[in-house]
Design a protein around this nucleic acid. Structure first.
Lengths: 148, 148
DNA sequence: TTGATATTGATAATGAAACTCATTAGTAAT
DNA sequence: ATTACTAATGAGTTTCATTATCAATATCAA
């Protein structure tokens, strides 16, 4: 079940406390705003959004906080090879992979239990300890197939 | 079976000819040197190696040529989220995915036909036309598990 | 409050990759 | 070989994402 924003807030606060870091108004705003986003955002995109809510916010703070959110398990880094990293909320959802349209960028999230299981099998076979994985499928979406 | 360097050379030449581009001594050197590498290299790493063989070679030429090699299907771009793209020879081998150690960077190539098949199933399910995919598993290798 | 320490935002720095452009080199036809 | 055309090169510049630096500020525990 999806966790409420109150939960992410307390998770983040706890994470920060463990590292002797502090919850600040900027971090609260960034967390709240980030969790509201429907699409995966880049640090730059989120910065633009935040700038409207708090014009004094700094560039670096957004980058720094997104990194912290990733470490806290609240955000997840996505790399579609665009040159910049995208972030998606990670705590309130189950893991999933991505199917990206190479023409329009449309993005479908999917989860295939069989694939997941097979991945674990591969990792185990080589004696590795699985930390993370990323599976991106790139294709042309139905709409873009028509437009030629 | 692995193709000889003569083959990649002729493949590249043919590819260039089709685009009214030319095989040059620099491109020959870059191709030959690239194919010799045992590990996946970044453009920068390959540039450093090439610089020793031909100090006059330019930065941009390496980037440009690696891009051409990718288009020609001789090289393949890998993105492990390091910030820079890595390239591996692609023509003389079958497709494979990567299992990367997050500590030492050791890199295992694997191919799992079942995973491949399931990926196609996912893509088809959403009406997409598969163009490419990347599956990277990140873990800790047996050696690094010992070193704690 | 105070002192220790973390945070912030402005700015500079970095590194990867693409672009610019004058010069050089291939190519095909003469 | 000469020419005219076009592609390729390399040096340097530029862009862009991200990180580092640092002085000023905010936070927290005592």
């Amino acid at each position: 079940m999806a966790l409420s924003s109150k939960d992410t807030h307390s998770v983040f606060t706890k994470f920060l406390a463990e590292k002797s870091l502090r919850m600040t108004s900027q971090r609260e705003l960034i967390l709240k705003t980030f969790c509201k986003q429907k699409k995966h955002v880049t640090a730059e995109e989120l910065y633009d959004i935040l700038k409207k809510l708090d014009p004094s916010i700094g560039h670096a703070t957004v980058y720094r906080t997104l990194k912290l959110l990733s470490e806290a398990g609240i955000a997840r880094e996505l790399n579609f090879g665009e040159g910049s990293v995208r972030y998606e909320p990670d705590l309130d959802r189950e893991h999933h992979d991505h199917l990206v349209c190479v023409k329009c960028g449309e993005n479908i999230e999917f989860l295939d239990e069989e694939i997941e299981a097979l991945q674990k099998r591969v990792v185990t076979k080589y004696g590795y300890e699985l930390v993370d994985h990323s599976l991106n499928l790139y294709g042309v979406c139905p709409k873009c197939q028509e437009t030629k």
